[in-house]
Measured scan of single mutants.
Amino acid sequence: MLEGKVKWFNSEKGFGFIEVEGQDDVFVHFSAIQGEGFKTLEEGQAVSFEIVEGNRGPQAANVTKEA
């Protein structure tokens, strides 16, 4: 699992990017966010995740919000 911070997330469109120190930003789709209820992320929020190869390159999977 990697750790990063949410760079930005558009809850209307359901996607955004996660910043990872020393690496390129990683695309995140709302469907990759773990948990119940409305799936969104806040700018600057700490998250842990895995990287998988998507249709358009690397993207986040199994995203969990850090306490």
Rank of each mutant, 00 (worst) to 15 (best):
H29A: 03
F38N: 08
W8D: 01
V20T: 08
N10L: 08
D24E: 12
Q23H: 15
G35H: 10
N10H: 08
Q59L: 07
H29L: 07
E12N: 15
I18D: 00
F38D: 08
W8P: 00
K5F: 06
E3F: 15
G44P: 02
K5R: 11
E19V: 13
G35W: 09
M1G: 09
E19I: 15
F38G: 07
K39I: 06
F27R: 03
G44C: 04
A60R: 00
E21S: 15
F15L: 07
P58I: 11
Q34S: 11
T40Q: 09
E53S: 12
T64A: 12
T40Y: 11
S11K: 15
H29E: 03
A46G: 09
G4A: 03
Q45F: 07
W8I: 04
T64L: 14
A60D: 00
L2S: 09
A61I: 11
V6P: 00
W8N: 03
F30N: 04
S11I: 13
M1I: 13
Q23F: 11
K65R: 13
G37V: 06
G54W: 11
G35K: 06
Q45E: 10
E36A: 11
G37M: 06
N55D: 13
Q23T: 10
E43N: 13
L41M: 07
K65P: 11
A46E: 08
R56T: 09
E3D: 12
M1Q: 13
A60V: 03
I18Q: 00
Q34V: 15
E50W: 11
I18Y: 00
A46T: 13
K7S: 05
I33D: 01
V28P: 00
V52M: 11
V52S: 10
I33Q: 02
V26G: 00
E42M: 11
S48C: 05
Q23W: 12
H29Y: 06
N55V: 14
T64D: 08
K7Q: 03
D24G: 15
N62E: 05
G35T: 09
K65T: 10
E12M: 12
D25L: 08
A61P: 01
F17G: 02
V52E: 08
E43Q: 14
K5N: 05
G57W: 05
E21F: 11
G44E: 04
V28I: 10
V47D: 00
Q23I: 11
K65A: 12
V20A: 08
E42D: 11
K7Y: 04
E50Y: 13
G16F: 01
F17K: 05
F27Y: 08
A61W: 11
L41A: 04
I51G: 02
G35P: 03
F38I: 09
V20M: 12
L2E: 06
N10D: 09
L2G: 09
E53P: 15
E50V: 09
W8H: 04
G44R: 08
